Amino acid sequence: MAFTPNKAGQRLTAGGMNLNDMIGATVFRAIRGSGQSITSGTEDVANAIQWDTVDLDLLGAWSAGSATRWTVPMAGWWRLDGAVSFVGVTSPATPGTLRDALWYVNGATVSAGRARSFSGTIGTSPMTVEARSIPYLLNAGDYVQLIPLQNASISVNTGTGTYAPFMAVTYAGPAS
Rank of each mutant, 00 (worst) to 15 (best):
G141I: 08
S34P: 00
V54S: 03
T53W: 02
A93L: 12
Q10D: 14
L149N: 12
A30K: 04
M167L: 15
A140Q: 15
V54N: 06
T94F: 12
R69L: 07
G96H: 07
W70S: 06
Y163C: 00
A131Y: 03
A101I: 04
R116F: 03
Y163W: 02
G35D: 01
V110K: 11
D44C: 02
Q150H: 09
Y143F: 15
A93E: 05
T121Q: 07
A101M: 10
R116T: 14
A131M: 04
G113N: 08
K7T: 12
I122K: 05
A115K: 12
Y136C: 04
A140R: 15
G123P: 10
A168T: 14
V87G: 03
F3W: 14
T128I: 12
M17D: 15
G76C: 07
S133W: 00
G159V: 07
S133Q: 14
N157H: 08
N47H: 04
A67C: 04
I154F: 01
M167Q: 05
T13A: 10
G15N: 13
I122L: 15
L80G: 03
G15R: 13
A108K: 14
G24A: 12
V156E: 05
G159R: 01
M167E: 01
D81N: 14
S40H: 11
R11A: 12
F28C: 07
Q10Y: 07
G9E: 14
Y104K: 05
V156Y: 04
A175W: 15
A61E: 07
G96Q: 07
E130V: 00
M17W: 15
V110W: 10
G161E: 01
N106V: 00
F166C: 01
T170S: 14
L12H: 12
L98R: 13
T42R: 00
G65V: 04
E43Q: 12
T97V: 13
F166E: 04
A164N: 06
G96K: 06
T13Y: 06
L146D: 02
F3G: 05
A67L: 10
A48L: 05
D55F: 15
N18L: 11
V105L: 05
A8V: 10
S119R: 03
M167I: 10
L12N: 13
P73A: 12
Q50R: 15
G107F: 01
S153G: 08
R132G: 00
